[in-house]
């Protein structure tokens, strides 16, 4: 197969993954809507878990298709598949879905499936329509081992931050519902974890990945020293990476030292996460500076 065959294959597979992902989303949504309607009747539980299993299998399927799609993209470009924003997005979706699938082996997080499939669909859709650039070799500044180190660390951190934010968001929604119902949950929400577990889970994810994020920034700085002649120049991307870092550092501090929990912590988590998204979307597309590899 020629390089462009691989590139076309990759594009087709992205569409296929999106189709399967959409299906998974619909079934997750169906299961949720249905359980909201029927409440906690015992008879429905087995049917519900059957529906969930189907949705989960579809999630695994789109994940596998995505693996091949990203691989094909890498082959077509002859390098790691994260040289521009389009590739960063598809690889990021892969990492994000993978984190969810791994987590669902050990923890009961299938209730997150609806958010995961929605976020993946959104990211892939934006990627292939707005961010798409043809498969091409790297510009000289990107030809470095640091591309592998810096960007893979950034992708994984981003995926896990996003997951922690989904959970913090779920916390806030559930908390509001519980408050309205005087502490009780409606039937459909009974199978979701306790509020404290959600709170703990998003904290653990952030604590786990914060050092990786720190590492990614340090690796970026070492690379910048070699490629641009300075390790820190307050380029917009650097500035916002620093802001995200401070945001999550404040979050961790607030939890450990000041004992923040629950709602306040969840909001802080969401604020820090949105600075990451801002960096990714705004700075890549509209920002100026050395660090814009969106290729758009």
């Amino acid at each position: 197969m020629s390089k462009s065959d691989w590139a076309f294959l990759s594009n087709d597979l992205i569409y296929a993954a999106m189709a399967v992902c959409a299906l998974a989303f619909i079934i997750f949504a169906y299961e949720l809507a249905w359980s909201i309607r029927v409440g906690e009747e015992k008879t429905t539980i087995s049917r519900r878990s059957k529906v969930l299993r189907i949705a989960q299998s579809l999630t695994i399927l789109y994940f596998l298709i995505l693996v091949v799609a990203v691989f094909a993209r890498a082959v077509s470009a002859g390098r790691v598949p994260w040289g521009n924003m389009y590739e960063f997005s598809i690889t990021g979706t892969l990492a994000f879905t993978f984190a969810y699938l791994v987590a669902s082996i050990k923890f009961d997080v299938q209730w997150l499936g609806i958010l995961i499939s929605f976020a993946s669909l959104l990211t892939l859709g934006t990627a292939i329509t707005l961010l798409y650039v043809p498969s091409a070799p790297l510009v000289p500044a990107l030809k470095s081992t640091w591309l592998v180190i810096h960007v893979s660390a950034a992708i994984i951190s981003g995926g896990v931050f996003l997951l922690a934010n989904c959970i913090a968001g779920a916390y806030l929604i559930l908390e509001r519902i519980e408050q309205k119902n005087e502490g009780a949950r409606p039937g459909w929400a009974l199978r979701l974890p306790k509020l404290e577990s959600l709170d703990q889970l998003s904290y653990r994810l952030v604590a786990l990945v914060f050092p990786l994020w720190t590492f990614s920034i340090i690796a970026g700085a070492i690379w910048a020293e070699a490629a641009w002649g300075r390790y820190w120049g307050w380029d917009p991307k650097e500035t916002w990476a620093f802001i995200t870092w401070v945001g999550y550092a404040a979050y961790l501090h607030a939890r450990v030292t000041a004992g923040w929990k629950g709602r306040r912590a969840a909001w802080l988590c969401l604020i820090a996460g949105s600075t990451f998204l801002f960096n990714y979307v705004y700075v890549n597309i509209w920002g100026t500076g050395k660090h814009t590899y969106s290729g758009l």
């Binding site: 917009p236 916002w240 620093f242 802001i243 401070v246 920002g287």
Partner: peptide, 9 residues
């Protein structure tokens, strides 16, 4: 410091 760095971007 983080907030102060925003206008520069």
């Amino acid at each position: 410091l983080a907030v102060a760095s925003i206008p520069g971007s």
